[in-house]
């Protein structure tokens, strides 16, 4: 196999050139554009100045969207962990014949259109949605409770989108734990809870941290749930970028916001990679 050292490069070259030309170069363009000026006429003027970044941090409006993005991402991570760990543990310990079907079901949403899954919450949370209908029928409410177009609704959409990622990451980690370790702990006098706390929980940490990183990164860049389920005050950074680029055609400023988002995610991913290693994430996605 050592006879032709050029062979792997020949095999790689189509993919590498595609990613280089269509991803690396365009991202460099964003960085370059973020220093450009925008003429009052709307034309872009090549320049090297930090005005676009200064504009972002000028008053509290734009930074507050950045802070909201980080806050919503953290809330989603915590909720996904709370809602996802127990089902993953259930899959790990269950001896049920239906286990493989149940796991398949958790994968199923990956195949269902993201926009359908997001807007499906309108049928549940809307003024004439399922919850309001049931509450009014049962006489608990007289008029519908307004549950849409706020941060809670956005979180519902995000949770439904990201929960499978968390469950699978944790499950892959749990599945690698030898069950005889549990038996050993039990035979040495641990209670079920102690065995979980002392053996299973620490060993599942790689999956937990990988799941948290993935959920955080995907939430921080999300556009659709705040757009469809949120109100005017629930915009996240991706919505802001979309508005600046497609709405007001302010390319330099939109580019600067994109760079800020990339830097934020870059810092988080690199810190994670430094201390924990990124490969766990890609392992689960297989």
């Amino acid at each position: 196999m050592q006879e032709k050292p050029w062979k792997p490069w020949a095999l790689l070259s189509p993919s590498l050139s595609a990613v280089f030309l269509l991803l690396v170069v365009p991202v460099c363009f964003i960085v370059v554009y973020s220093f450009w000026l925008r003429a009052p006429s709307g034309a872009d003027i090549p320049a090297f100045q930090f005005g676009n970044y200064a504009k972002f941090f000028e008053d509290f409006f734009y930074p507050s969207i950045l802070i909201r993005t980080i806050r919503v991402a953290l809330e989603t991570v915590i909720l996904c962990l709370v809602m996802g760990y127990i089902p993953a543990y259930f899959f790990y310990r269950s001896e049920s014949r239906h286990k493989s079907i149940l796991l398949l079901l958790i994968m199923l949403p990956f195949w269902i259109s993201f926009i359908i899954r997001t807007l499906s919450w309108i049928n549940i949370l809307g003024d004439s949605g399922l919850i309001n209908y049931l509450l009014i029928e049962m006489g608990i409410l007289n008029e519908p409770l307004s549950m849409l177009y706020n941060e809670g609704a956005v979180l519902m959409g995000l949770l439904q989108y990201l929960l499978p990622f968390m469950i699978l990451n944790v499950y892959v980690s749990l599945d690698g734990i030898d069950k005889s370790l549990l038996e050993a702990a039990r035979s040495l006098g641990c209670t079920e809870w102690q065995a979980f706390k002392e053996v299973v929980l620490p060993l599942s940490m790689p999956g937990v941290s990988a799941g948290c990183l993935l959920v955080f990164v995907l939430t921080a860049g999300t556009y659709l749930p705040p757009m469809i389920l949120g109100g005017p005050g629930n915009d996240m950074i991706a919505n802001l970028i979309f508005k600046r680029i497609i709405g007001t055609l302010d390319w330099p400023f939109g580019s600067a916001i994109s760079v800020i988002l990339l830097v934020l995610l870059g810092i988080i991913v690199f810190t994670y990679n430094r201390y924990l290693g990124i490969n766990q994430i890609f392992k689960t996605l297989q």
Binding site: S15, F29, F242
Partner: peptide, 22 residues
């Protein structure tokens, strides 16, 4: 390998802007 897998971690909004700008 990491470079080729990178688009997973890059927000789609940024991919959208980047290619459009290009």
């Amino acid at each position: 390998n990491t470079l080729l897998l990178a688009p997973i971690m890059i927000p789609e909004v940024v991919l959208g802007v980047a290619l459009l700008l290009f």
